[in-house]
Simulated assay, not measured.
Amino acid sequence: MQLKPTLETERLILRPLDIVRDIDAVCEAYAHAPTMRYLGGKTMDRAQTWRSIAMMLGHHQVRGYSFLSVIEKETGQWVGRVGPWFPEGWPAPEVGWTIHPAHTRKGYAKEAGRACLDYVRDGLGWSSVIHVIADGNIGSEKTAEALGSRRLYALEDGIPGVTTDLCHVYGQDF
């Protein structure tokens, strides 16, 4: 089955995750402690990363959408994963992002996030969206605000099965 969509921005291609093509770059990101401190707090080895990608692919099968691999047009490099997400137990439909540490501070999360917001509004028919952001993740808070979202509420006990740490929910209506 061909997974969809593929989105394009000025500098990026957003395509479905491909466990074979993407595993090495995702492993690098998930092994980076500063990146993972806001994604449940623990780094992942290759086997754990493989299972994480498989979970996202399964989410795509169940929901019809999931995180997309973000590819830099100029180099073909994997720069992150951005996209729609709404597993069981999540507070509401989300557009989330994780950027590879070699590609942070380039505006990629904002650029890809904007494309995904347009997609969930126009392609999936969502009327609102959230972003669950771990406490202290100033970069993601600034990205959410740049995308037009505002802080809505706190999840004092985190998200069951992911983290017990304080998270903030940002969001917007379309």
Rank of each mutant, 00 (worst) to 15 (best):
L3M: 12
P5A: 01
T6A: 08
T9C: 09
I13V: 15
R21W: 03
R21T: 09
D22R: 10
D22M: 10
I23C: 07
A25D: 07
E28N: 10
E28A: 14
H32D: 11
M36P: 07
Y38G: 03
Y38A: 00
L39K: 08
K42V: 10
T43N: 00
T43R: 04
A47P: 00
S52C: 10
Q61C: 12
V62F: 08
G64D: 02
Y65L: 13
S66D: 03
S66E: 02
S69A: 15
V70Y: 00
I71G: 02
K73T: 11
G76P: 13
G83N: 06
G83F: 01
P84M: 03
P84Q: 07
P84V: 10
F86W: 15
F86P: 01
G89Y: 03
G89K: 06
G89F: 09
G89D: 09
W90Q: 08
P91E: 05
P91Q: 09
V95F: 01
W97F: 14
T98L: 15
R105G: 04
K106R: 15
A109I: 09
G113M: 04
L117E: 02
W126A: 11
V129R: 03
H131W: 12
A134L: 04
I138S: 13
E141W: 09
T143M: 10
T143F: 01
E145I: 14
S149D: 13
R151K: 15
A154T: 14
A154R: 14
L155E: 01
G158D: 01
P160W: 09
G161E: 02
V162G: 01
T164F: 06
H168Q: 12
H168V: 03
V169T: 05
Y170R: 05
F174M: 07
